[in-house]
Simulated scan of single mutants.
Amino acid sequence: MIFPFPVLLATSDVVFINKPAGLAVHPGPKTPRSLEDHLPSLALGGFVPVAAHRLDRDTSGCLAIARSRRGVKWLSAAFSERRAEKIYWAILSALPQENAGRVAAPLAKVSTAAAGWRMIVDGGGRAAATCWRVLDPALRLVEFRPETGRTHQIRVHAAHIGCPIAGDPVYGDAAKASGAPMRLHAQSLAITLPDGQRLAVSCDPPAGWPLLNAPETQ
């Protein structure tokens, strides 16, 4: 079996891939088919590779996968100790009033029988912070750098400042009616391993994004 998605970097312990939008990382009641179905094709021995973190089903881009038990340990430590640098690009439904800023708003999970679960800004939730800056006003293209790794963090923080991500079916009201795809992309990922080695990758947004002259990250 051949791994069907772009591999950005591969070592004997770690693999970085470009996950397509529309593919869940893990299986669930609504996503029986997931990235996990394809991970055995990245194996070098008896260890079955595992995703070291999660991207939402409709988020594309850089994802780290552990290829060995040592890789699991290394990546787990990097994410838990905040030695993973993540940059996301998003097209927003509206532009913030400022060119750059930082959102510090704790997040909590809520669930109802009618609407299912979602994340909300809640003073009693877990601390969460995200930095952002406008890359291209004409395209409403904004860069996000999460300082923490909470579920749906960027999506909720974008909506919290009044600028939900275009196509977001949960946190953007207009998207529910339009049916347009969500425009959130994990553009780059850099991880510092325990031995000091730094692994860094980046990838372009998927086809269909209006990015004729994508800006360089800084």
Results as ranks from 00 to 15, higher is better:
residue 160 H to N: 14
residue 81 E to D: 15
residue 137 P to I: 13
residue 213 N to G: 12
residue 169 P to K: 09
residue 105 A to T: 00
residue 9 L to F: 00
residue 73 K to N: 04
residue 100 A to I: 00
residue 193 L to P: 02
residue 52 A to C: 05
residue 108 A to K: 12
residue 180 A to P: 01
residue 156 V to L: 11
residue 117 W to I: 02
residue 55 L to M: 01
residue 145 R to H: 15
residue 137 P to W: 13
residue 127 A to M: 09
residue 129 A to C: 07
residue 146 P to I: 15
residue 129 A to P: 02
residue 49 P to L: 06
residue 184 L to M: 13
residue 33 R to I: 04
residue 28 G to H: 10
residue 218 Q to S: 14
residue 81 E to I: 06
residue 104 A to W: 05
residue 119 M to T: 07
residue 36 E to V: 00
residue 156 V to I: 06
residue 37 D to L: 14
residue 41 S to G: 13
residue 176 K to I: 14
residue 43 A to S: 11
residue 107 L to P: 01
residue 124 G to W: 14
residue 134 V to E: 11
residue 68 S to I: 01
residue 143 E to A: 10
residue 104 A to S: 10
residue 61 G to T: 00
residue 166 A to W: 05
residue 149 G to P: 04
residue 48 V to A: 13
residue 104 A to F: 05
residue 189 L to T: 14
residue 162 G to V: 11
residue 50 V to D: 04
residue 16 F to K: 01
residue 86 K to N: 15
residue 29 P to C: 12
residue 79 F to Y: 07
residue 154 I to Y: 00
residue 89 W to N: 06
residue 157 H to I: 05
residue 1 M to G: 11
residue 80 S to P: 02
residue 208 G to T: 03
residue 18 N to I: 02
residue 111 S to G: 11
residue 166 A to G: 12
residue 165 I to N: 07
residue 206 P to W: 07
residue 27 P to G: 09
residue 181 P to V: 01
residue 118 R to P: 00
residue 119 M to S: 03
residue 193 L to S: 05
residue 200 A to C: 13
residue 42 L to S: 03
residue 71 G to M: 05
residue 214 A to F: 05
residue 132 W to L: 06
residue 46 G to K: 12
residue 182 M to T: 06
residue 76 S to A: 11
residue 111 S to K: 10
residue 155 R to F: 08
residue 48 V to M: 11
residue 3 F to R: 14
residue 118 R to T: 00
residue 130 T to M: 13
residue 131 C to S: 15
residue 37 D to K: 15
residue 128 A to W: 00
residue 92 L to G: 05
residue 158 A to K: 04
residue 82 R to M: 12
residue 110 V to N: 04
residue 26 H to C: 09
residue 74 W to G: 03
residue 184 L to C: 11
residue 197 Q to R: 14
residue 53 H to I: 03
residue 39 L to G: 01
residue 61 G to D: 01
residue 153 Q to D: 13
residue 43 A to Y: 09
residue 34 S to N: 14
residue 92 L to W: 01
residue 209 W to H: 08
residue 152 H to C: 11
residue 52 A to N: 03
residue 51 A to S: 02
residue 140 R to Y: 02
residue 9 L to K: 03
residue 102 R to L: 08
residue 73 K to R: 12
residue 130 T to I: 08
residue 84 A to K: 10
residue 186 A to H: 05
residue 189 L to S: 09
residue 203 C to R: 01
residue 198 R to Y: 06
residue 7 V to L: 10
residue 151 T to E: 08
residue 193 L to N: 04
residue 67 R to I: 02
residue 59 T to V: 03
residue 61 G to H: 01
residue 72 V to A: 05
residue 131 C to Q: 15
residue 82 R to S: 12
residue 185 H to V: 08
residue 186 A to F: 02
residue 218 Q to E: 12
residue 83 R to S: 13
residue 32 P to H: 14
residue 195 D to G: 11
residue 12 S to H: 11
residue 180 A to N: 08
residue 104 A to R: 09
residue 93 S to E: 15
residue 16 F to E: 04
residue 78 A to F: 10
residue 210 P to I: 13
residue 169 P to F: 09
